[in-house]
Design a protein around this nucleic acid. Sequence first.
DNA 1: CGTGAAATATGTATCGT
DNA 2: ACGATACATATTTCACG
Lengths: 152, 152
Amino acid sequence: MDRLDLRILDQLQNDASLTNQDLAARVGLSPSACLKRVRRLKECGVIQREVALVAPDALGASLHMVVEVTMVRDDKPLYRDFIRRVEAAPEVSQCYQVTGEVDFVLIVNVADMQSYDRLCDSVLYAGDAVHKFRTLISRKRNKFETRLPLGV
Amino acid sequence: MDRLDLRILDQLQNDASLTNQDLAARVGLSPSACLKRVRRLKECGVIQREVALVAPDALGASLHMVVEVTMVRDDKPLYRDFIRRVEAAPEVSQCYQVTGEVDFVLIVNVADMQSYDRLCDSVLYAGDAVHKFRTLISRKRNKFETRLPLGV
DNA sequence: CGTGAAATATGTATCGT
DNA sequence: ACGATACATATTTCACG
């Protein structure tokens, strides 16, 4: 993982629709050398996947929420089951297991309150794992950036 | 925006590296018709961009935090300036403006505590806009999904 | 890592429904 | 207005230097 790989990642985090030729030109490499690097970065999991980011309000899924979850107790199987439900719930886009006064923070995005309700049933009220939760409703998502700071 | 567009979005949210041919085959369209739709979806902003998702731990930026921010008072210019600083800070990947006991929730991801410190200086302590904040340190990111539920 | 040629994919024009 | 076919252009990909 040298400087060239970092520059490649930097570009692709911004715009994965770049052709290999353009990418190669930008990082100062021949197309074939560039392609080999990109493939290696995918192979070894540094590039996990390429995705299209869709405007939430173009699809009526513009309701974002932050849910802080406190579990009933510290218990491996309990946690594992909860995480499994979280993973299975399409409404939950992110899940952070945190230290401190709460145990999990979920980022939820849904079309309406009915969908939020379904989420509560399928994840929060299911299985007696959750002691309590607090929902912060987002009025606005001011920033959403998938890019990691690479220090290039 | 019909069923076909939704199927296209569904595919591209999963894997934007699909060739137009494969995509067309999956949604049951000819390549040219498919391409026209994809371009239209990009033109009108439904597809915002395509990005590569990079494994955070492959790059030593694996420290995630959730920061809850409470402002000193409700004040337009104050908020505007804060948001501007948030947007400028590469350590802050997401910012939700929420209702309730706190005013903002930030998702931060950094390589180390030193970077977190820089963030505090450049965003949280700058400008006397922030009354207080609470930082929840993530032990683990159990889920990170950019895909919106499309109900297809 | 770079070059060049073969294999693939994209993009366009045209026609049909 | 939208989709299909076919052809021209561009890109990816691989063997070789």
